[in-house]
């Protein structure tokens, strides 16, 4: 019984320690951001591996999520004769929730895990140490560009996801379900508010992008420098990012739409 409390206590202390390290780490990384200004190439490189290489999965998932939403929504709405509102249903679910959240979850799996593994391996193979000994701060050279790139890439990916989702829903609704073309768009336009829906979605994905990249680079930097440590850190990145995104989504939704 005492063992249980000891375990609980140790776990609690551990997680507080990690939280503290993560915060200090973030502050140091943020302090490194100004040094990127004269060297945009570093960020562009990371935008490529974080953003461009995630495009495929985002495009495919976006289109399919949109099409499925249309099919499912149609079945429900048609019983009330409200299938004209299909566009509204799809657009609001994508813009407010699915776009930012699903993009963030896919991001954690595709880009976040890769970030953690890359930085973790750099640590394991002494590349970070080597950099320090060459008087190059890995915080500025390695961590800061990745953090910034993740922050920039996420809202763009989420916008692409939502847009393609709506397009996918449009094709399914109009071509196969027989929803009126004009009604689909006009209903959507009168119900969707730019500030309320589109911008709030963008704000959400900015927050998610920040948190997801923070977790990914921190886990990589903080990992135990062994192959097992890297693999555990990679798993933690995906799990922690997903949990953080879902939790934050609840809070943000409550604040924005509550």
């Amino acid at each position: 019984m005492l063992g249980f409390f000891a375990l609980l206590g140790r776990k609690t202390l551990d997680s507080f320690g990690r939280l503290g390290r993560a915060t200090l780490f973030l502050l140091r990384a943020l302090a490194g951001l100004p040094s990127l200004l004269p060297r945009p190439t570093l960020v562009i490189q990371q935008l490529y591996s974080i953003g461009v290489l995630s495009l495929l999965i985002i495009v495919v998932s976006g289109v399919f999520v949109g099409m499925v939403l249309a099919l499912q929504g149609y079945n429900t709405l048609v019983t009330f004769g409200a299938e004209q509102s299909l566009g509204v249903l799809v657009a609001l679910s994508l813009l407010r929730e699915l776009g930012p959240v699903v993009t963030a979850l896919l991001f954690a799996g595709r880009a976040g895990s890769a970030l953690t593994a890359e930085i973790g391996l750099m640590k394991t193979t002494e590349q970070l140490s080597g950099m320090e000994m060459m008087a190059v701060d890995p915080m500025k050279r390695v961590v800061a560009p990745r953090l910034l790139a993740g922050f920039i890439a996420m809202p763009l990916l989420a916008a692409i996801f939502s847009f393609l989702g709506i397009m996918g829903a449009y094709v399914v609704s109009v071509a196969t379900l027989g929803v009126d073309d004009g009604a689909f768009w006009s209903q959507m336009q009168s119900a969707v508010d730019f500030r309320e829906d589109v911008m709030n979605g963008v704000i959400k994905s900015l927050v998610f992008g920040f948190v997801a990249s923070w977790i990914a680079v921190f886990e990589g930097y903080d990992c135990e420098p062994t192959s097992e440590g890297v693999s555990r850190a990679t798993t933690r990145t995906v799990v922690h990012t997903s949990l953080a995104v879902l939790g934050l989504d609840f809070v943000l939704t409550a604040v924005m739409f509550g």
Partner: peptide, 13 residues
């Protein structure tokens, strides 16, 4: 995509 969402999907006040 963001522009498309702004113009086509919503009405910018």
């Amino acid at each position: 995509a963001l522009f498309g969402l702004a113009m086509q999907v919503s009405n910018i006040p």
